[in-house]
Design a protein around this nucleic acid. Structure first.
Lengths: 251, 251
DNA sequence: AAATTCATGTCGTTT
DNA sequence: AAACGACGTGAATTT
């Protein structure tokens, strides 16, 4: 890694120089110090003075992290534009974006530590066990749904969103599948229902709706039954269908 | 701030010492270096070697950030437990959690910079413009919904979730309100419908459902009309109801 | 621990 | 830019 710069207990003026340099040269920047934060945009917020870690990325992302929690206490998403200045002898980091118009102001009373990094990283994460992989599996092996099922199309358009998988069963019924990678509640039933409604409105008859997921909550199952919709148990990770009980397993 | 420790281009053995010390003493830790990452849990993933910034918080949170994006490329949420070791001369940071069982392994080939911080911060964010504030406003000033509306209860239980606001109108109808702080699509209509269904199932008659939000999409409006549900325009931030047209504004 | 919902959600994709 | 849905969503709240 080239260009690692660090300041320990700098004056706010020294810190400003590093911050402006990091923004200019598109380097990742960390600032640890005592600050207060103002946010105004979709909502508005104020965070009184305290010690936090602020991260400014080359793409404009700003993250302010406290001692706890995955989520930053304040932030600005990628595409925002940052600038720094001195305000009453304090270091002010300002980030703005548009649509929606939002501003984030971080006022550092004291900077304890600031660093700028040039990170070399072109690698992307490979992730397994997503809904898209359930979809591929079903397109390739439609029999995991049921004998005689034919998967005709994925991402088929409807009036209110895309249908994960559309197909036909052995009896010639149309079948709408809604896939979920994890256990789901009644909102997933309603999502399936929207697509089924849509095809019935278009004049299709004999439309079955099947929710495909590892499991569903009780209230989701009630709602499925009330609407005449079905559930099929399927795991995303191993992508193996419901395992039948072994001979040693009794009720 | 007490106890700021920093290592620049340390050996992996030196870095290990700092990491273990930070974990032991519950300090915030940043590690910038070249690493590969393995994740296994609800899904599984692999991130090949590259330079990133890793953040380990005192509460067990782990965040691995690349040059871009708000979201970490890999992470472990708060409550996870971290440990460090040397593995084939490399620094291995391992974090595990249970329910769900998940493990994250960060293998540093080279550490460029590592720092540990004790952050003093007991302050919480004050945030305005949330749904809960729309709710309070409506409980206090029910006339923002309509003349004669009485707000009887918030967070009232139903079979499938809590109703934001439950009340009665001037004609004695029961009224279910679903509040949203921003523009919403058809899924919000279905959420409202679930609560209305539930009260009708319980034998209530004359149940009105009103979606309260700054605006709705076209498909949401269609679905509202098809279901006989209503929409009321209300902003979360200023919390002022839909402004009536001034005399200068014509169609 | 399970269920439910909000969120300044963020992010990807398509229209 | 708007709409729509997935996400290893996270976080809060209640049962």
């Amino acid at each position: 890694m080239t260009n690692l710069q660090t300041l320990r207990n700098p004056s706010n003026r020294e810190a400003l120089e590093l911050v402006e340099d990091a923004i200019q040269s598109s380097r990742m920047l960390t600032i640890v110090g005592s600050c207060e934060v103002d946010y105004d945009g979709r909502a508005s917020g104020y965070l009184a003075e305290g010690e936090r870690l602020t991260l400014l990325k080359p793409d404009g992302t700003v993250l302010i992290h406290q001692n706890q929690d995955s989520d930053p206490v304040n932030w600005q998403p990628s595409g925002s534009r940052a600038s720094a200045s001195l305000y009453e002898d304090k270091l002010k980091l300002e980030s703005t974006r548009s649509s929606p118009d939002e501003t984030l102001e971080v006022l550092f009373h004291e900077v304890h530590h600031a660093s700028a990094y040039s990170l070399q990283d072109g690698v992307e994460l490979s992730l397994y066990g997503q809904e898209s992989q359930m979809q591929e599996r079903i397109m390739n092996e439609p029999e995991v749904i049921e004998d005689g099922f034919r998967a005709l199309e994925k991402e088929r358009e409807s009036e209110c969103g895309r249908i994960d998988v559309f197909g036909r069963d052995d009896d010639g019924n149309h079948v709408v599948l809604e896939l979920k990678r994890r256990r789901v509640g009644p909102e997933a039933v309603d999502q399936l229902q929207r697509y089924v409604d849509d095809y019935r409105d278009k004049g299709y008859e004999n439309v079955r709706g099947i929710l495909v997921s590892p499991s569903v909550t009780d209230s989701a199952m009630e709602r499925l039954e009330a609407r005449g919709l079905e559930h099929l148990e399927l795991e995303p990770e191993s992508m193996t269908p419901q395992r039948t009980k072994s001979l040693d397993e009794f009720d």
